[in-house]
Write a protein that binds this DNA or RNA. Structure first.
Lengths: 144, 144
DNA sequence: GTAATTCCTATTAAATTGATAGGAATAATA
DNA sequence: TATTATTCCTATCAATTTAATAGGAATTAC
């Protein structure tokens, strides 16, 4: 299951894209429009800022903004920050590899083999989708 | 993350395939060889039996066996039984669809769009992988 | 009738997730 | 400078899910 954290994070990012302008977008505005518990959202946006996807401005008229253009923000990055490793098992993770304690021979492990394929297929999606794609409405996608 | 339940289940199924013969395979043998807590494994195999993937024989010399040929057992079926819906969010699930309470318009929801792609890519893997594929060693896979 | 097995239900422990609380730090502006 | 609006930080809590264990009933082979 996709965590609420990731779901909220994706919605928030999309909202920020669609609020395009120079002014930073406030947590309260996102929370209200996207129906996300504000305090929870705060912590999510903070994570996204710490990872470098978002920038922020403190104090009155503060808020969050994108550090890169939407089309430069890959889902690989966003998903790793919000949801964690893309691989479903550490032994096929590219960025967070860990050997299984059980599993004598990785090369002949049925789980390993299957999960490597799943990882590749997910990576293929995330590498070819940017935040710009997410913020397109379906009708726009059809035209595209 | 892949649950231990699924991981153990896949390993157990592979073990049963590789123990090919007419005799049913006992939980104790699988547990020992695959390093799986026996009682936990019992409940997993029971689930697989109830779903129709495995058959069982009770009593002395009892055990579990496949109900179909390995190449007829698709990963879509196994994964749904063990891990649950393949979709990461209910609103893109083919078999367990549920509308989101939030989300006014599904067609323009960024999460929906992305997760539908991920679901399709995972389905593509699971529909094209059978238990027979899992039980091939890597070297055999290369030759294939 | 005994031993070996699956089957069933209940319980527990640990980990994770989702959410809340309270206030510190910072910045704009009146 | 005082006030207000905001992000930032840490801690905590509640709910859910996962992983595992326990005990014994039912069934079958011999």
């Amino acid at each position: 299951m996709l965590s609420k954290k990731t779901k909220y994070g994706l919605k928030a990012l999309t909202f920020i894209v669609n609020s395009e302008g120079e002014k930073p977008v406030q947590v309260s505005a996102i929370a209200k429009n996207e129906q996300i518990p504000q305090k929870f959202l705060e912590s999510i946006l903070l994570t996204l800022r710490k990872s470098g996807v978002l920038g922020s401005k403190k104090g009155k008229h503060g808020g969050y903004y994108l550090r890169k253009e939407p089309h430069e923000i890959l889902m690989t990055e966003v998903m790793r920050v919000l949801e964690g490793p893309i691989a479903m098992v550490p032994c096929v993770s590219l960025n967070y590899y860990e050997k299984c304690d059980d599993c004598v021979d990785e090369e002949s492990c049925s789980v390993h083999m299957l999960m490597a394929k799943v990882r590749d297929s997910a990576l293929n999606v995330f590498r070819n989708t940017t935040l710009a794609d997410l913020s397109l409405k379906k009708t726009e996608n059809i035209l595209k």
